[in-house]
Design a protein around this nucleic acid. Sequence first.
DNA 1: TTCATAGTGATAACTATTATCAATAATATA
DNA 2: TATATTATTGATAATAGTTATCACTATGAA
Lengths: 131, 131
Amino acid sequence: MKNTATPSQRSTKQKTAIITYLRSVKTHPTAEMVYLALKKKMPQLSLGTVYRNLDAYAQEGKSLLFEVKGQQRFDGDVSPHSHFACDACGGVQDLWFALPLPKVKKHLSHGASVRSIDVLIKGQCDTCNVR
Amino acid sequence: MKNTATPSQRSTKQKTAIITYLRSVKTHPTAEMVYLALKKKMPQLSLGTVYRNLDAYAQEGKSLLFEVKGQQRFDGDVSPHSHFACDACGGVQDLWFALPLPKVKKHLSHGASVRSIDVLIKGQCDTCNVR
DNA sequence: TTCATAGTGATAACTATTATCAATAATATA
DNA sequence: TATATTATTGATAATAGTTATCACTATGAA
């Protein structure tokens, strides 16, 4: 159930390609999307390698990981922001409103620690709404 | 991939038991948790029936559905609120701070429509932190 | 009561993800 | 630079959560 992602120690072509790609797009891709995109240039790339490294980057805080419709989505931009996911086309967009963090903390149990705050708004995007 | 949940037309013992149970707990159970709890009184209950109905209730807006660690969690309380999920024990708690809705709407694309807003804070709960 | 059909139970199928492991390649060291 | 060590990869099998299928059951209308 858990990917036992070890902190990365050696740099490889695969790792570089994966993080570079993730940071170059704003599509919030799934592991398979990253895999398919990179496979064009690295035909022997393995899907397992993509999962392994995306997962590791997320654990190291070098990427964001959240779930939409039972699938993991990754984001190379780790600055705090929210996401909008379209039910129809499956696309995910960034939202940059600020959360009332002091208010949020007040509501947490005393002694609880926060690792991440994921805000996911679901609905229908403007493009899908006009169709 | 999609559960073709039809809007409920007939009332059955199973449906009643499922929604009654979901509304009686604050544990944000998975489908299997609901199944195991109800199975004690309804031994022939099927896991598929639980999934089918929990999913249908969520689509009808009679329950909340969100995902934690790749698993669906259900909440019988549909009034707007957020959730805290503990990485260690897997428990989920309600959080009742208010979101800055006007600000949120301003950041959405014009023409986009919102179905749900899921706020999921992940971390370690107070109990797991002291251990 | 009878009838049409929505819903259930049992189980198979599916899909995303994780685990396994022999082969490969990155780095430290001689 | 050559060699040794071992982290990482690629290929693939295994897993788990969820969804689909379908014969049978039971609800609710007539």
